[in-house]
């Protein structure tokens, strides 16, 4: 499938933005200036971006606790995200959600989610809205190998099939649910689970943007055409711990280094597009430089932004009470 040049440039920029955003958070978190905890998406960029390159603002996604990448891939504004993670009033959630609850419904981003398995049922609902309102949109649940075992996820696979919903379940399998390996925690096979619910199963290498884009495109087209849900199993590796501060003693030495060296989705993308003559290396360098500036100014702005005010504590619990 031919991917438009615009899409390639936009996707590269999104992946680079996620990488720099997360690497910068890794550094800044260590200074102690960022409250709470953060879960980084480094190494998984091609998955979120490859899927979302097939979506519009009318389509809905639900994300996970590791949600920064999905937000950026779906078009949520970076400066607002950074301010949110710093707990500032200018954040996309006015400093009341933080890293795990970044959402922007105007972009079809139904929220990162602090609850493992929280997203798939919500996505059934978003898909039901799209189906009932006949707006041609689809809904995509990102969930991890940990969430793949949650009852809420398995119920959602069933419900989406029973109701023939325009939903896609994107399983981002980085091999670990927190500090426990998928090989321990996930029984049977994901493929057999999808087939057990009677939905198409696609699998791809999550470090290869083109592979994700292709497979996600098929799954989304299936759902959008009214054929019911599909499952996309994306295999990838996370470069940092479950959360910042996780010493990752459960991973063999060299596991992350090898992933960084041999399976960096940005490197793979660059090699592929320049060798094929699709994009010029200098165009990518320009993007790298622009993203560096964008992240830098987002951090500076976030640090200088006002903190929430006392009155904000009581605001927006309800529309009206």
């Amino acid at each position: 499938m031919q991917i438009a040049r615009e899409t390639l440039l936009r996707s590269y920029r999104a992946m680079r933005t996620i990488r720099d955003f997360e690497e910068r958070l890794h550094v800044e978190f260590a200074t102690g200036e960022i409250p709470g905890f953060v879960h980084l998406y480094c190494g998984e960029e091609a998955s979120g971006v490859g899927v979302c390159a097939n979506l519009t603002d009318q389509d809905t996604i639900a994300s996970t606790h590791r949600g920064h990448g999905h937000c950026i891939a779906k078009g949520v504004e970076v400066a607002g995200m950074m301010a949110e993670i710093y707990g500032r009033r200018t954040g996309v959630c006015q400093g009341k959600g933080g890293s795990m609850h970044i959402a922007d419904l105007s972009r079809g981003m139904l929220g990162a989610n602090g609850i493992v398995g929280g997203g798939p049922p919500l996505i059934c609902g978003a898909a039901l809205s799209h189906k009932t309102l006949k707006n041609g949109a689809v809904a995509v649940a990102f969930y991890g190998d940990g969430a793949s075992n949650e009852g809420s996820t398995l119920e959602s696979l069933n419900l989406a099939t029973v109701w023939r919903l325009p939903a896609v379940f994107v399983l981002e399998d980085n091999g670990y649910g927190e500090a426990t390996g998928a090989s321990y925690a996930c029984a049977g096979s994901q493929k057999a689970r999808a087939e057990g619910f009677g939905m198409p199963y696609l699998e791809c290498d999550g470090t290869d943007f083109f592979a994700v884009h292709q497979a996600a495109g098929e799954a989304i087209a299936h759902a959008r055409a009214g054929n019911g849900p599909a499952m996309l199993h994306v295999r990838l590796a996370r470069w940092y711990g479950h959360f910042e501060g996780d010493a990752m003693t459960y991973r063999a030495s060299g596991e992350v280094a090898a992933a960084r060296a041999d399976h960096d989705c940005l490197t793979i993308f660059r090699t592929r597009v320049t060798q094929a003559g699709l994009l010029d290396g200098t165009e990518l360098d320009d993007i790298d430089s622009a993203v560096r500036d964008e992240i830098e100014s987002a951090v500076i702005a976030a640090k200088q932004a006002p903190l929430p005010e006392a009155a904000d504590l009581l605001a927006d619990v309800y529309v009206r009470y």
Binding site: T60, A62, L105, L110, G118, P120, P121, L122, I123, C124, G125, A126, L128, S129, H130, T132, A139, S152, E155, S156, N158, L159
Partner: peptide
């Protein structure tokens, strides 16, 4: 799944 779906549908 269906109570969650109701929440998701309400938000969308």
């Amino acid at each position: 799944s269906y109570i969650g779906a109701a929440a998701g549908a309400a938000a969308t």
